[in-house]
């Protein structure tokens, strides 16, 4: 096993296209356990953290650009980002302990391909785009399109994510992410639920996005919940529709962390709660409450 730390995107892509068995990593918080368990045995370990744009947080008038290898601690400690994207910041802050937070990244969390990755539903509801570098230049893909199944990515072997683009939060909007774990920390989500809403001037919901983690092979949107919310307020009836739709859209498995029945039921509960928090944040941000 050979360790290399390219200093530019070009150097990294050329390394990847010439190395038959290379593993890119940022924090290695998933890679090391996989190596130890013998689940992968790359010949080359490519450390992406020395490439400047992969470890940066930049804001302009229209969007945030977050380097794919940026430690999630940098993101959660960035006050402006965390105030604007409370849900995404909290989701990023749920990835493991403080120790892990100094290593884990949005890029790693996404590219590990786990259906339970906490930051992914929060990125999906915020319409985050991944900028992907490869031997032929870069391309842009919605985060929702990156993972195609457990451990399966739509990236080629010689591609990697450089950065994420996150459009600035619209007015009267808020996001939220909740996860269920048996402990309070240090667990993999049994169910995760992200929501983002934009309110109309009259306070009703103008736009809603709901996405669930850990309840299907990939993160799933809940269109029926979104439809039930639009044009309504989060009253008992719409929330119950959200919960029902969330439970319905699930396609979970029974495993050591939870059962199908449990995941379906709790997906509804968390979707409902996440919507409520997102609405509350949208209201607070705009002085409605």
């Amino acid at each position: 096993m050979k360790y290399v730390a390219p200093s530019s995107v070009e150097e990294a892509t050329s390394l990847l296209s010439t190395s038959p068995s290379a593993q890119v990593f940022a924090g290695a918080t998933d890679v090391v356990p996989q190596l130890r368990a013998g689940r992968s045995a790359p010949e080359v370990l490519v450390d992406l953290k020395k490439i400047q744009e992969l470890v940066s947080i930049v804001k302009d008038d229209t969007k945030w650009t977050v380097g794919a290898a940026t430690p999630t601690a940098n993101l959660t400690e960035d006050q402006a980002f965390s105030e604007e994207f409370q849900g995404l910041s909290e989701a990023a802050g749920l990835i493991g302990s403080d120790q892990i937070q100094n290593r884990s990244s949005l890029g790693g969390n996404l590219c590990n391909g786990s259906p339970a990755a906490d930051s992914v539903p929060a990125m999906v509801v915020n319409g985050v785009r991944a900028v992907i570098a490869g031997p032929n230049g870069t391309r842009v893909l919605d985060v929702a399109e990156v993972v195609t199944g457990p451990g399966q990515l739509s990236l080629e072997d010689d591609e990697f994510i450089v950065e994420f683009e996150i459009d600035r939060m619209p007015e009267r909007s808020g996001d939220a992410y909740l996860r269920m774990i048996p402990r309070t920390e240090m667990d993999i989500a049994v169910v995760g639920a992200g929501a983002r809403v934009t309110l109309a001037e009259d306070g009703s919901i103008e736009e809603a996005i709901v996405a669930l983690g850990a309840v299907a092979p990939t993160v799933v949107r809940v269109p029926e919940a979104e439809a039930a919310l639009v044009g309504n307020t989060p009253n008992e009836q719409t929330l119950s529709a959200v919960a029902g739709a969330a439970s319905e859209v699930c396609n979970p498995i029974d495993d050591k962390r939870g059962t199908i029945a449990y995941r379906k039921q709790v997906a509804g509960v968390l979707a409902k709660r996440a919507v409520l928090i997102a609405v509350e944040r949208a209201q607070q941000r705009n002085g409605m409450k």
Partner: peptide, 13 residues
């Protein structure tokens, strides 16, 4: 067989 999935209490619990 790991401290991730064999869940002993953590301080925040």
């Amino acid at each position: 067989p790991s401290f991730l999935d064999y869940r002993i209490p953590v301080a925040s619990d």
